[in-house]
Amino acid sequence: MGKKELSPNLETVPESLVQLAVADKLINLCRANSLWPLTFGIACCAIEMMGTGAARFDLSRFGAEVFRPSPRQADVMIVAGTISKKMAPGIKTLYDQMPEPKWVIALGNCAISGGPFVYEGQYGIIEGADQFLPVDVYVPGCPPRPEALIEGIIELEHKITGWRRWPKVKPEWREDNNT
């Protein structure tokens, strides 16, 4: 997997019958700034998700702290943890119950690709949420830090509006670290 530049595409949102460019921009801006996640955590990444909502990291600064218990009112599904084969139908049902427009964030290595559970003869784990869900943003880590989830939310906002809230921080590599 290489790093892919995100294009500001709007494919996740069904196109409206009447096209109004300015209104669409405004609506997308509103959608991006009020992403209500669905309250559910499958495994240990959910602890980090709770930490993101709590006092130190405070997801509510971006208006995304309204964890809705009902899928009918949620906008973004944060798949936080290992997806066992037994749990997958439930997750799929929850996704199907969410009204459009809806987005999926795969949080942690298990939800991205199975993480440490990928080995020969493994029978109980689904290797990645993208096996059965259209994932928009992948947040790597085992588990990811809360900052990473916030970055994931900002990246999702970028995907929805085509405009990024803050410039991306370029990672700095020191040569003497590699020796």
Binding site: N33, A54, F62
Partner: peptide
Amino acid sequence: RRPGPMENGPWGLLQPPID
């Protein structure tokens, strides 16, 4: 002990219309 909505408008005042 956290700031609450902050980024959308001053002190998050644009949050209700956005929602």
